[in-house]
C-alpha cells in the first residue's frame, strides 16, 4: 500500500509532536469495569482496557471471548450494563459525533453498497465524516491509492476478488484519516500478497500517528505488527503486554528439533526427566522436545544424547510463538 498520512488535515506529524499529544490527552481508549450481559450470559465481565496513543494494540481471544462485543460497546453500537468508556479522554456516547469523526472502523464482514462503484462506496463512507466536497475528493483519491485500487474505481464490489474487496472494505473505513482505527480481522480469506499489503498499510497508518486496535485469529500477524497485545477469554482480559512480556508470563519455552537415526526408550525417558522438559516425541527420524523456559535447554538435551552415544543430524530450536502463549492461556479445548 502507498504512503498514507493520518489526521484529517493531512500532513504527517513529527514524532515529538505526537509524543507531546499523547502526554496531553492520556489514553486514546480507556475502558473501565465494563459489564455486558446477554440474559444470563456474561459477555464482558468487568472488562478493562487501556490503549495509549500510537499503539497497534492486538486484541486476541477464542471465538465468543468478547472481543467483538467489547469493540461494539466502545463504538456505542451496543448497550452495556455497567462501566465507563472514554475515548481521547472524553466520555463516549452514541451522539458524540465529534469523537466518532476521529474513529475509523474496518468491520470483519465486508459491508458495502453492492450497487455503488469502488469510488462511490469510499466517497459515501468518507462523507459520513467529512462534509467538504473538495477535501473529500482528495481523501478518497488518497485512500484509493493507499489500498491500490486505482485500476478498479469504476468496478462494483461483486466484480472484485476477495483480496480487492477486503482492500475496499479497509479504504471505506479509513478514508477520512481517523486518529483511532479498529480493524476486526481484516485479513480473513485473502491471499498472502493482499495480507502483506494490508499489514504494511496498517503499519504505515500507525507510523503516521494513527492508533490501531487490531483483532485477528492469525497469531503470526498479531505478533508481527502489534506493539501490545491483550488476550481475552470469557469476557475478561487474561493477559496484557508486549509480545515478549506475554511469552515471559507463561512457562512455554522453545521447541527443539533433532534428527536422530534411532532413539531407545531409556534415552527418551532420561530426556523426559530433564529439568524444563515438558514433553518428548519421536517420529523417526525427528525427535521433538517441548521445553519450559530455561537457560540451558539445548545443551542439556544434547548432553543426554551424547551420553547415550547417539549421533545427531540436523538440529534447530524454535522459540515459543504467540500461538503457544495463546493456547497455554486459553486452553486447547474447542470453542464455539
Amino acid at each position: 500500500m502507498d504512503e498514507y498520512s493520518a489526521g484529517p488535515t493531512g500532513p504527517a506529524r513529527a514524532a515529538g509532536e505526537a509524543q507531546a499529544a499523547r502526554a496531553a490527552v492520556g489514553p486514546v481508549v480507556a475502558v473501565d469495569n465494563l459489564v455486558k450481559r446477554y440474559g444470563d450470559l456474561v459477555a464482558l465481565d468487568h472488562f478493562n482496557l487501556t490503549i495509549e496513543p500510537g499503539e497497534i494494540f492486538g486484541l486476541l481471544g477464542p471465538n465468543g471471548s468478547g472481543k467483538t462485543t467489547a469493540i461494539n460497546c466502545i463504538l456505542q453500537l451496543l448497550t452495556y450494563d455497567k462501566g465507563t468508556i472514554r475515548l481521547f479522554g472524553e466520555p463516549m456516547a452514541p451522539t458524540r459525533y465529534d469523537l466518532k469523526r476521529r474513529i475509523g472502523v474496518v468491520p470483519q464482514n465486508v459491508a458495502l453498497f453492492e450497487e455503488l462503484t469502488v469510488r462511490e462506496n469510499i466517497d459515501f463512507f468518507c462523507a459520513l465524516y467529512v462534509s467538504d466536497r473538495r477535501e473529500r475528493a482528495r481523501l478518497v483519491d488518497e485512500a484509493i491509492a493507499f489500498v491500490g485500487l486505482q485500476d478498479y474505481v469504476k468496478f462494483r464490489p461483486r466484480k472484485l476478488s476477495g483480496g480487492l474487496l477486503r482492500r475496499l472494505n479497509i479504504a471505506c473505513g479509513i478514508a477520512h484519516k481517523p486518529q483511532l482505527a479498529f480493524f476486526d480481522e481484516p485479513t480473513v480469506a485473502v491471499d498472502p500478497q493482499s495480507r502483506n499489503a494490508i499489514l504494511e498499510g496498517i503499519r504505515a497508518m500507525n507510523e503516521r500517528g494513527c492508533t490501531v486496535v487490531y483483532t485477528s485469529h492469525y497469531m503470526e500477524e498479531v505478533e508481527e505488527i502489534c506493539s501490545r497485545i491483550m488476550i481475552m477469554d470469557k469476557g475478561r482480559s487474561v493477559a496484557v503486554g508486549t509480545n515478549a512480556e506475554l511469552k515471559a508470563m507463561v512457562g512455554v519455552g522453545e521447541r527443539i528439533f533433532i534428527e536422530v537415526a534411532a532413539l531407545d526408550e531409556g534415552t527418551r525417558a532420561r530426556l523426559a526427566t530433564l529439568p524444563h522438559v515438558r514433553h518428548v516425541a519421536y517420529n523417526e527420524p525427528e525427535l521433538t522436545v517441548h521445553c519450559e523456559q530455561g537457560a540451558h535447554n539445548v545443551s542439556d538435551v544434547m548432553g543426554v544424547l551424547a551420553a547415550a552415544g547417539i549421533t545427531c543430524g540436523r538440529m534447530y530450536a524454535e522459540p515459543p510463538t504467540l500461538n503457544d502463549v495463546f493456547l497455554e492461556i486459553t486452553g486447547k479445548e474447542l470453542r464455539d
Binding site: 469523526r101 472502523v105 464482514n109 462523507a127 459520513l128
Partner: peptide, 20 residues
C-alpha cells in the same frame, strides 16, 4: 434495512459514522 445496525452489517457500519 440498510440503515439499521440491528438489521444489516451495512447498517451497523453506517451507524458508526459522524452523521446523526
Amino acid at each position: 434495512c440498510q440503515t439499521q445496525p440491528n438489521l444489516s452489517p451495512l447498517g451497523a457500519r453506517r451507524a458508526l459514522g459522524a452523521v446523526g
